[in-house]
């Protein structure tokens, strides 16, 4: 009993300290520039808080094994004086708690975050303000076009593909692995993954299929300032995979319209 009480007290204190540490480091995602990234961050934080006492429990047990329950120097050997085959209460609580924690985590944040995400995408689709960006992934480049503005293959001043998004406006990415310059070659392409680290998600681009992904950028930023703002292929797709990234920017609404005008000019000149 003495050991159990001692363990309990230390466990509570240790958990509290660790929870406080988690509170300090909780911004795990580093850059969260969309509502979706913030949601993911919240889910991660929540899980972090929940698993920390479990971590503390097992680690403390191991520490007890190292200190409290180790064989002393002067011990001549022999078996431990405490022998029991099982302990109903402990087993019951263990199983009960692990069931409850897991079911609970499944309801929240797992299911709730998915539902939330789903609702957001439905809401964005209805929004008259929705910006549609067609994303084409092929070995090994990203191309972006803005069908609402008649822009195909937006490029920056160096002629490389560039993704520019306005802040505070829902975006729908339409992800395909073929593009307007190429025939759809049934054999050519492979799976890519469209990842913007600062946006908190990624989705694979599957040859022959169309996938959608939604985002609502809330922070300004650009690759030049923060590399978490970049479009990176996250699924290995051949020797060019490491090079399959482009720069991107999240800009204000006025900067965005200026950029659109510039792109339009570029399109008509070429």
């Amino acid at each position: 009993m003495k050991d159990a009480v001692k363990f309990g007290v230390i466990w509570v204190i240790l958990s509290a300290i660790l929870e406080w540490c988690v509170y300090l480091v909780r911004h795990m995602f580093y850059t969260t520039a969309t509502i979706q990234a913030v949601d993911g961050q919240h889910a991660a934080d929540f899980i972090f808080y929940v698993v920390t006492p479990i971590f503390a429990f097992v680690v403390l047990m191991l520490i007890f094994g190292f200190t409290q329950f180790r064989r002393r120097r002067n011990d001549k050997g022999g078996n431990s004086p405490h022998q029991f085959r099982t302990n109903r209460a402990f087993v019951g609580i263990w199983i009960g708690v692990s069931l409850v924690v897991n079911l609970f985590l499944f309801v929240h944040p797992t299911a709730s975050a998915m539902e939330n995400y789903w609702n957001q995408s439905v809401e964005y689709q209805k929004s008259p303000n929705l910006l549609v960006v067609d994303v084409y992934a092929r070995q090994w480049q990203w191309m972006y076009s803005y069908p609402q503005y008649g822009i195909a293959n937006a490029v920056n001043s160096a002629g490389n593909g560039e993704l520019v998004l306005p802040v505070d406006r829902p975006v729908q990415f339409v992800l395909r692995s073929y593009d307007f310059n190429h025939y759809y070659d049934v054999e050519a392409d492979v799976i890519h993954s469209f990842w913007i680290p600062a946006f908190g998600w990624k989705t694979d681009v599957i040859p022959g299929e169309t996938r959608y992904e939604y985002a609502y950028p809330t922070e300004l930023g650009s690759t030049a300032e923060n590399q978490m703002f970049r479009v990176q292929c996250a699924e290995v797709c051949g020797p060019g995979h490491p090079y399959m990234y482009t720069g991107m920017k999240v800009v204000t609404a006025s900067q965005f319209s200026a950029w659109i005008q510039k792109q339009k000019k570029l399109q008509s000149s070429s």
């Binding site: 995602f29 990234a37 949601d39 993911g40 889910a43 991660a44 899980i47 972090f48 698993v51 479990i54 971590f55 097992v58 680690v59 191991l62 985590l105 944040p109 797992t110 975050a113 998915m114 995400y117 993954s193 990842w195 680290p197 908190g200 998600w201 990624k202 989705t203 996250a234 699924e235």
Partner: peptide, 27 residues
């Protein structure tokens, strides 16, 4: 081994959550 596997398992809980997985997958 128990300590290390504990960390492996608990980080797995993060990865099991789709909202978090969307960010962490393939990293």
């Amino acid at each position: 081994s128990m300590f290390n596997f504990l960390i492996g398992g608990l980080t797995g809980v993060f990865l099991a959550d789709p909202a978090v997985n969307m960010q962490l997958h393939d990293t």
